[in-house]
C-alpha cells in the first residue's frame, strides 16, 4: 500500500519544529510501524537528507522505549499495543498518517520524535524499589502471597514505562505510571517496609513534573499493557493513609 506520512521534525530542543510530508510506497501490511520509519529513513539517507530520529529498542513491546502519537492516539489505533507492535495492516492504502512526539512540559523534545523521559527515572528513584538484602535468590515460596494479591501486583508490574499515559492525558498527568509502580510494590509483603514512605515520595516527585488526575480515563485506553485506572484510586488512598499515619 502507498501511504503519506506527516512527521514532526525538530532539529533540537530549541528548534521550533514542524511537520514534513513523506511518501512511502509499497508498504507491506506485515511491517511494524517502526519498520515503516526505517524504510522512510533509508529513503531519506539515500536522498542525502537527515533521517527521522525516534526511540526504539526491543521492538517486541516489552522495553517501553518506543512511543509515538499516531493520528492523535498514543501508540496508534490498535488497543493494548506499543508502537513497535503496531502493524501497517491497521492502515489502508492511501492513508495519511500524522506522527508526533509525546507532548508534556516534563518531556522536552530532544530531536524529532525523541523526548527526554528522565522524570520517570526520578519517580522510580524516589521509591520504586524494595530494600531487600542482596545475595542468592531466596526460595520462591518462603513468603506466602495470596493468589489474588500476586495477580493484581503482577498486572501493575506489567507497566513498561513508555509514558503513553502522560502523552494521552489531557492534563499530562503521570498517575497511571506512578500508580502502577506504587501498587505493584505496596501490595506485596516485600514492599511493606517502605510502603508509606514510597507512596509519599513517589507521588510528590510525580507532582513536581506532571499534572493532576481528572479521571478522564485516556491513559487506560492508551496503555499498551492495560494498566487499570483502579491503580490510581489505590495510590490516592495509600497517599492519604501515609499522610495520616506519618510514618
Amino acid at each position: 500500500m502507498d501511504l503519506t506520512l506527516r512527521v514532526w521534525r525538530q532539529r533540537g530542543p530549541l528548534d521550533e519544529g514542524g511537520f514534513e510530508t513523506y511518501q512511502a510506497a509499497g508498504v507491506s501490511g506485515d511491517m511494524s510501524f517502526l519498520e515503516l520509519l526505517d524504510v522512510v529513513n533509508e529513503q531519506l539517507v539515500t536522498e542525502g537528507r537527515e533521517p527521522i530520529a525516534f526511540d526504539h529498542d526491543c521492538r517486541e513491546g516489552i522495553c517501553g522505549s518506543c512511543g509515538l502519537m499516531i493520528d492523535g492516539r498514543a501508540h496508534g489505533p490498535r488497543a493494548s499495543t506499543a508502537t513497535c507492535q503496531l502493524h501497517m495492516r491497521e492502515f489502508s492504502d492511501g492513508d495519511t498518517i500524522v506522527v508526533e512526539p509525546w507532548r508534556a512540559a516534563a518531556f522536552p523534545i530532544i530531536r524529532d520524535l525523541v523526548v527526554d523521559r528522565t522524570p520517570f527515572d526520578r519517580i522510580i528513584e524516589a521509591g520504586g524499589y524494595i530494600s531487600a538484602p542482596t545475595g542468592s535468590a531466596p526460595e520462591a515460596n518462603l513468603i506466602p502471597v495470596p493468589k489474588g494479591t500476586s495477580d493484581t501486583a503482577m498486572d501493575a508490574a506489567a507497566c513498561i514505562g513508555c509514558a503513553a499515559c502522560v502523552a494521552a492525558c489531557p492534563n499530562s498527568a503521570a498517575h497511571l505510571f506512578t500508580a502502577a509502580k506504587v501498587v505493584h510494590l505496596n501490595l506485596l509483603p516485600q514492599g511493606q517496609p517502605e510502603r508509606w514512605r514510597r507512596v509519599e515520595r513517589m507521588v510528590e516527585t510525580m507532582e513536581e513534573y506532571f499534572g493532576s488526575c481528572t479521571s478522564h480515563g485516556e491513559c487506560e485506553k492508551a496503555c499498551p499493557k492495560d494498566i487499570s485506572l483502579d491503580n490510581i484510586a489505590v495510590m490516592n488512598r495509600d497517599y492519604l493513609q501515609a499522610k495520616i499515619r506519618n510514618r
Partner: peptide, 25 residues
Amino acid sequence: RSNKAARGAKYQSPRNYLAANYASR
C-alpha cells in the same frame, strides 16, 4: 493552572480521544 503548566506545548495535530467524554473535558 498546574495542569496547564504540565502540558507545555500543545499537540500540533488533532487528538483522537477514546475515553475522555464531553462531561469530563
